[in-house]
Every structure is written in structure tokens, then in C-alpha cells.
Amino acid sequence: MRKNRNAETLTRSVGRRNGDQDAYEKSPSITEQQTLSRRNFLAGLGITVAAAGTATTTLGNTSKALTKKSNHQVQWAMVIDTRRCIGCHACTVACKSENDVPLGYSRSWVEYIEKGDFPNVDRSFLPRLCNQCSQPACVDVCPTGATYKRKEDGIVVVDDDICIGCKYCIQACPYDARYLNPITGTVDKCDFCLHRVTQGLEPSCVNTCEGRARIFGNVNDPASEVSKLLAQNSYTVLLKEMGTYPNVYYIDADHADPRDFLYKDRYIRVTTHRKEKLRR
């Protein structure tokens, strides 16, 4: 909660400072954005200020968006219907190749949660990726504005021309969704396959999902498949109490965790299938 208040105040002050509000209301198309970012880019210094602005202003606004006040705005989102997930890891690998993720790091991974006593044992699957939060903890702490939430589609991106690799955002992300790319020296994470989505293509993990458990779309469009699924099903997000307002929604997710008091002295095994053997 404390977190959110911070975010609010942050929005107001910065929002006023660079008077970005109405620019945002118009929500320009990608191409405008690109030229915009060109100007910024050439402006060198300009860019980061704008970025910082973007980052901070969007925070407030997408939180509005989440309460469906600004439906004109695009917020890409993913619904993961774990009932359909067979834990096949196709998403993990698709992501690795689509985004040249170095060995030992992951933008996406699939956790297995195995629990119970023979013969009443169950194994469930929890695909993980960046939540493209509406109030991204990572953005709050970024000192350079390299990571920010795109106003045109709510995707949280890292600009690797600006990122200094201070790793503050890695610390701040409750979901361990970020890693320092050893090649570029900048931080990387799932960006909803921005380079595909901006070309009208589904993200790579969605396109290969064997169970069609990953559904992608605009959560602010009531007619989109994601909106419908969320309307028709009960769903959860991960670590709600972190106040990040994720845009990755889970249907029937198994939130069981060994550190959860409920599972004291009961068999539960979480396998992350990546270098980090433990959850954050």
C-alpha cells in the first residue's frame, strides 16, 4: 500500500512538472511514437527526461486504466489459463530463440508445483514472465529512466541505449523477471515481444503454446479474448500485495509455496527449471 501512495504522489508532481498529461491523453500511434522517439533520441538528453516522464506519468494513468476508466488506451495483457497448461516448456524455448536470451538467463520459465501424499499427489504448472505491471516497481527505482512503461500499449520496456546496468530494477522486481544481460551489460526482461506485437504478431510464447494456455490481447478492449476470459472466470495475479498491479492474469493458478505457512511439514516441491533454483 505504501508503495501505491508513493506512486500517486510521484505521478502528480512529475506529471505537473513536464506537463505530459494531455500528450498522453491523445495516446499517439506507434509511428508517431517512433518519430517522437527519434527526435528524443537525437536530442540525446531529451530522450531520458521524456522517458522518465513517460515512466512516471503512465503509472498513475494505467492504474486508472486498470479500473477501466480510460478504455481508449491499449494495455496489452496476458491471461494464462493454467488449466490448459501441460508444462511443456515450449514457451520457454520459443522465448529464448525469439529474443536471443543468453544461456543461464530467462525472460520466461515454467515452474512445476508438486504437492500431496501418495496417491493423492498433484503437479501443477505456473508459466512465468514479466507482468508488465501497471505500477511497475522496476520503473519506480530506475535512476536513468531507461526502463519505462510505454504509454501507447502499457508494455514495460528497457531502453538499452540508456540503461547503465545498475541492477536496481532487478532488486525491485518482486517477480524476478529481470536479469543483467552479460553481453550488453544492460538489463533485459520480457517485453511482450514488442518487436512482434508492434508488427501485428502474437508474442512468440503465445504462438507456440501447446495447450493454448497463454492468451494475449488488449485488456482495455472489452471485446478482446482476454477481457472476456477475465469477465467469465475468477483469476488471480502473482504477489498482489506488492501493489504492482500485474497485467499477466492467471486462471486457476496454484499459489502454493514451500515458504507459505500452510505448507509447513507437508510435501511440496517447486521446480523453477532455470538457473535460479528458488523463487524470489
Binding site: 512516471t56 519506480d140 535512476p143 536513468t144 531507461a146 540508456i162 547503465i164 546496468g165 538489463v187
Partner: peptide
Amino acid sequence: LGSFQAGHWFRWINLYKTINLS
């Protein structure tokens, strides 16, 4: 800094191209 270790010795200057509440 990751950038420094990756050989971008002066990337940290970016800290001083902006100010925010971080």
C-alpha cells in the same frame, strides 16, 4: 555497473541526464 563491466566506461553519465524520484 553492468554497463561498466561490459566496457561502456562512461555510461553512468546517464545518471546525470535526468532526475526522477528513484
